[in-house]
Design a protein around this nucleic acid. Structure first.
Length: 749
RNA sequence: UGGGGUAUGGCCAAGCGGUAAGGCAACGGUUUUUGGUACCGUUAUUCGGGGGUUCGAAUCCCUCUACCCCAUCCA
């Protein structure tokens, strides 16, 4: 868990602390209609993670209420994903389909309560009757059916007496609800099809909104965590549970923003399209953002977990940079995997002054990775280096081999280029070089300075391998469809050369090919005869970045244009009040505006004025503090009165208390409805303005914070607030802040 | 246009009236036989805009703006 809590954990902690629940119980409720992707990983981490953190439970539940889309292969993929990520769902996987009988009973109960009815409008009519976001809907004539009729119909729906779409069961809520979801939502529809688990027993299937809340309830879920698009569904969630009277210990829904990653599509529909259209090689194609894809690509569960942890949980729609994910996998693999030498695009180098062969002992791990292990690196006259590690006419910053610049062969000798052999077309086909016998790695006495060490393989002993180089699937940052596909997302190299130990000793399944990236022995296509490696992710590469930077153009600066809308005009009465407030009572226009436009506020204000003639002070507190309370409440719901507010203001006016204390007192009044004078008296909140009392406190604060004093004196004037705050804190807020301010400023000058 | 949400550096994200956390990215430097890693440093006088309240506002009030979700017999 990171040091700052996310809002969900904050809620859970509060609920536990308040005793609302004794134990947290979450659930991860995917629909088995596709392979889980990294967005599901986020949800898995949240639900299982919270359960783990607070010693509760998390159920894995297949939300399988739509028989036309779901399949066993997807439930297997879901289970694999959760398991691979390292979470434990206990010994039971839950299925909404297991609740079909109980769900049916609940539906019958709703019908008996007169809260649900069988509607026989067709699909199009239902849509029409629903109205639009701005116009209310109207209720179907079938809503008047008697309970008996509804019961009979629903039972016959269940028995399969009707065709698909002939009838539906709907909740009787409100066809003119502002929340469209509440306009008599569908509870059950007829589906005369086979369900992958329930078989052919059912002809009616519950809808999400009906099944989900009840499933949560039946499993004893406390926190039903879902994504933002279900915010509107929360009202139904609560309606169903409340209407059925299921409110002893019951779950509540909380929503978070789903994960978005740039250069990636995350909708199951689009992912399915890619699979079915053959743009990728299945759900586990290493370019897919599916868990199966990442797994096949070579990502580790730890890296995904860590990614989910670093991106945070919030309610703002956001788009995470893929670089963040790539960082996580590099960071994980860096300390774990052996380094080996592999040449992807071989260029032959003939070392003219070397005869025979030898085996060089080379550690698998660099000095900064505390792991043991080494292998023998065969070396002889003929080797291969990476083609782009040699340049005939290099730019100034080029550190590798050139006709003038020697280079070290990693773990081996320094070589110098003697001759460049080209074919008829001018392509370099071979380098003739010389090695420096006294430059061997570990016992170098040559004194030659090189700028870099490059990877190489011995020609005779190197193994040929297939390497699959993956790049992002989409070239657009926010891909829409197939037109945004990156045509070069897969590059297959059939004859890369790798040092033999990787194949013969198999020290690991993941490797860093030095200076290139991290690679993974493909779990499916790899064989000893034909080794295949997937590129997981490249190393950070400040060279290719530098080389590219020349052609990158300065990005066009788009300044946000702020459009100011028109302010709604005032009614005549409002304007009259506004004028009275500004002219007669001398309120500033903003406060006058707030008061004049709000029915509740001006009533409250004018009533307070009756007790105390201090129009400006009262206006300020009413427009700023009371307004907050009156946002969601009526005046008669408040525990405090206008008269009490006037009393409070009076104490501020005559400087008995400071504004700061007034706010504190006001908070008390909201809770208890006690008189402000009593609160002040009981708590001894009378303001301290005597410099003789305040001064020593300031001295103490100054003595305790020498660093900040220095910073302040160096010109950081913001720190004044810090000192004032400290003094106020140690006086329980009672010190007169104005006096403190002046004194602090004087003392620190 | 009705309702429900959300706005803090290039990307995430803490913060809940008293010094604008942290990570990624970027840039500079040190170490380095990986142009990797590690380490050090730089990068928001300002929190979508404008007002107001307050000694003091990212935090409270008013207002405007932008974006997301809702009119599947999907979940």
């Amino acid at each position: 868990m990171s040091e700052s809590k996310d809002f969900l954990r904050t809620i859970v902690e509060e609920d536990l602390k308040s005793g609302k629940y004794n134990e947290v119980h979450t659930r991860f409720p995917p629909e088995p209609n596709g392979f889980p992707h990294i967005g599901h990983a986020k949800s898995i981490c949240i639900n299982f993670g919270i359960a783990e953190d607070y010693h509760g439970h998390c159920n894995l539940r297949m939300d399988d209420t739509d028989p036309t889309k779901e399949d066993t292969k997807y439930v297997e993929a879901l289970k694999d994903a959760v398991e691979w990520l390292g979470f434990d769902w206990g010994n039971h996987v839950y299925y909404t389909s297991d609740y079909f009988p109980r769900l049916y009973d609940y539906a019958v109960e709703l019908i008996k309560m007169g809260k649900a009815y069988v509607d026989s409008l067709n699909e199009e009519e239902i849509r029409e009757y629903r109205g639009t976001v701005t116009e209310p809907g109207r209720r179907s004539k079938y809503a008047d059916r008697t309970i008996e009729e509804n019961l009979d119909l629903f039972e016959r729906m269940k028995k399969g007496e009707f065709k698909d779409g002939e009838h539906v069961l709907r909740a009787k809520i409100d066809m003119s609800a502002a929340n469209m979801k509440m306009r008599d939502p569908l509870l059950y529809r007829i589906r005369n099809v086979h369900h992958y688990r329930a078989g052919d027993t059912w002809h009616v299937y519950p809808m999400y909104d009906f099944a989900h809340c009840l499933s949560d309830y039946m499993e004893g879920i406390t926190h039903s965590i879902c994504t933002l698009e279900f915010e509107n569904n929360r009202d139904i969630y609560d309606w169903v549970l409340n209407t059925l009277g299921l409110n002893s210990t019951r779950p509540y829904q909380h929503e978070f923003a789903r994960l978005g990653i740039n250069y990636t599509v995350m909708s199951k529909r689009k992912l399915l399209e890619l699979v079915e259209g053959g743009q990728v090689d299945g759900w586990d194609d290493p370019r897919m953002p599916t868990i199966a894809g990442y797994k096949r690509r070579g990502y580790t569960p730890e890296s995904i977990l860590n990614f989910c942890d670093t991106i945070g949980i919030a309610k703002a729609n956001s788009m995470v940079d893929v670089a963040q994910l790539e960082f996580c996998i590099r960071d994980d693999l860096n300390t774990k995997v052996p380094r080996v030498l592999c040449v992807l695009d071989p260029l032959k180098v003939r070392i003219e002054n070397y005869e025979g062969s030898e085996e060089i002992d080379a550690p698998y791990y660099p000095h900064d990775v505390p792991k043991e292990g080494s292998r023998k690196l065969p070396f002889s006259k003929e080797i291969y280096i990476e083609r782009d590690d040699f340049m005939e006419n290099p730019p100034k910053d080029y550190y590798r081999l050139t006709p003038e610049q020697p280079v070290r062969l990693r773990h081996a000798y320094i070589i110098t280029c003697k001759e460049v052999i080209k074919d008829a077309n001018g392509n370099i086909v071979e380098i003739k070089a010389e090695y420096h016998p006294d430059s061997k790695s570990g016992s170098d006495s040559s004194g030659i300075k090189v700028k870099s060490a490059i990877q190489w393989v011995d020609a005779k002993t190197a193994k040929s391998i297939e390497v699959r180089l993956y790049d992002r699937l989409f070239s657009s940052e926010a891909p829409e469809g197939l037109e945004d596909l990156n045509p070069n997302s897969l590059q297959v190299i059939n004859n890369a050369l790798i040092e033999p130990a990787v194949i013969t000793e198999k020290p690991d399944e993941r490797f860093q090919f030095e200076r290139q990236g991290y690679f993974y022995a493909d779990p499916i296509d790899y064989s000893d005869e034909h080794p295949v490696f997937n590129k997981i992710v490249g190393l950070k590469d400040s060279w290719s970045k530098k080389a590219k930077v020349i052609k990158s153009e300065p990005k066009p600066q788009t300044k946000k244009v702020q459009v100011d809308g028109e302010i709604a005009p005032m009614s005549e009465a409002e304007e009259a009040r506004f004028n009275k407030y500004t002219i007669e009572l001398k309120l500033n226009s903003e406060v006058a505006n707030t008061l004049a436009r709000d029915e509740k506020l001006f009533h409250f204000y004018e009533e307070a004025l009756l007790t105390l003639n201090s129009p400006i002070s009262i206006a300020n507190i009413v427009a700023n503090e009371v307004a907050r309370e009156l946002k969601e409440k009526q005046i008669d719901e408040l525990k405090f009165t206008a008269t009490q507010i006037a009393q409070l203001v009076k104490m501020v006016d005559d400087e008995t208390i400071s504004n700061k204390i007034a706010k504190q007192v006001f908070e008390e009044m909201i809770e208890s409805g006690e008189n402000p004078t009593q609160i002040v008296e009981a708590k001894g909140l009378i303001q301290i303005s005597d410099p003789a009392i305040i001064s020593p406190i300031i001295d103490e604060v100054i003595a305790k914070n020498p660093d900040n004093v220095a910073k302040f004196k160096a010109g950081n004037s913001k720190l004044l607030g810090f000192f004032v705050g400290q003094v106020l804190k140690s006086t329980g807020g009672k010190a007169n802040p104005q006096v403190v301010n002046e004194l602090v400023a004087k003392k620190l000058k």
